[in-house]
Write a protein that binds this DNA or RNA. Structure first.
Lengths: 204, 204
DNA sequence: TTTTACATACCGACTGGTTGGTATGTTTGA
DNA sequence: TCAAACATACCAACCAGTCGGTATGTAAAA
């Protein structure tokens, strides 16, 4: 092996993520990326066969980080309580904590960004996005099944759409906070979601 | 006046809206719009001084239609019950009905699309987006104040973030349904929101 | 141990095509 | 007949992507 180019590759993805969340995939040119980074076209196209391939690699990296974060917060929540309902409430609380401690406004979710430009991407990328949504659902669905077995819900609900509701609120809150330029919206909406879960599975 | 160009103008906006919700503003070229419509550049730039101005006009039209829809459903809900809480639950139900009766998947919200490309737009457009969010909040906030005066919430909530939560869930559900390619998600999530409001203001 | 061969990382000029936008001419209806 | 509603022809800037070349490292043969 020659010089280690992995840091250059990472820096390209970092810059791309930042710019794409501000201007969308189609709004970011290869030139704008390399100019911001101070590298050349040669470097860019050495690491990615084309712009689309870079976008795909970026989304996969984002998805992987997402998964790691979810597993991390989940395992922390599971250590903080033995009760599945309490665990989930703590899980939401850890998300609140995370968004609350951010010094800069959360820049947004790449999946959402791509979703509002879906037809710009190839079938494989579109399928990866859909599969990711189903994966998030699957993870939380199992959790809700356990909760529902122990705590009968006050209103008839299904575990799948209940699982979806977490990401629904997150994605919605990202947009609202960006649109209104009010970062605090994310934590506020997570609190409402916690309220809902509490009320839905209240034992009293 | 010579020929009536208003229908051409409308058709340009219709096509733009459709394409932008598929590919994002930057992903839609003026050529792609006029080709799809079968008109020429002359027609396009006769009606709009540039692409940005078209995007701004489109967003304002979308915002106006939005407002009309909300007022329409609200007045229908107000006629169907005298109780403010019931009115709001009916209001959500009318949204459910609307999304349920759509023959094609809901294409998405222009405000959300623009929001994930915010830096592509000028300050005036960005402010219009932020003001729209605040306007939605304001409308529902008054409603919730009335509800809260009559029905003490089971958990401590503020009317502003509670108002935001409706649009949060809508915007989130739009993304989830597009990403997963499952239109039914929108109605499912609205049902969860209705659940939350019911449980939060339950009298028993 | 040195030299040759080779691979990776990167540079920057260049290309064909697309972009948003303009200048000017033509048609159409009141 | 006159202004609004288009069409046509064109331009300069920008776009993604290519290509010949260079710099820098590793590996293996002599």
């Amino acid at each position: 092996m020659a010089r280690d180019g992995s840091s250059t590759r990472d820096k390209i993805l970092d810059t791309a993520e930042e710019l794409i969340l501000e201007r969308g995939y189609s709004g970011v040119s290869v030139d704008s990326m390399i100019n911001k980074l101070g590298i050349t076209k040669g470097a860019f196209f050495h690491h990615f066969k084309n712009k689309q391939a870079m976008a795909e690699a970026l989304l996969h990296r984002f998805g992987d980080q997402d998964l790691v974060l979810m597993e991390n917060l989940r395992s922390r929540a599971e250590k903080l309580s033995r009760d599945p309902l309490q665990q989930f409430l703590i899980y939401i609380g850890l998300f609140e904590e995370m968004f609350d401690s951010m010094t800069e406004p959360f820049p947004g979710c790449l999946f959402a960004s791509y979703t509002y430009e879906l037809q710009q991407f190839d079938e494989a990328t579109r399928r990866y996005i859909a599969d990711s949504v189903l994966r998030w659902r699957g993870e939380l669905q199992d959790w809700f099944e356990i909760i529902m077995a122990q705590y009968p819900p006050r209103l008839p609900v299904d575990s799948a759409s209940l699982a979806d509701s977490f990401n629904t609120i997150l994605e919605g809150a990202f947009i609202m906070s960006k649109a209104a330029n009010q970062p605090e919206i994310i934590v506020q909406q997570l609190r409402h979601y916690k309220n809902y879960i509490e009320l839905l599975f209240a034992t009293d």
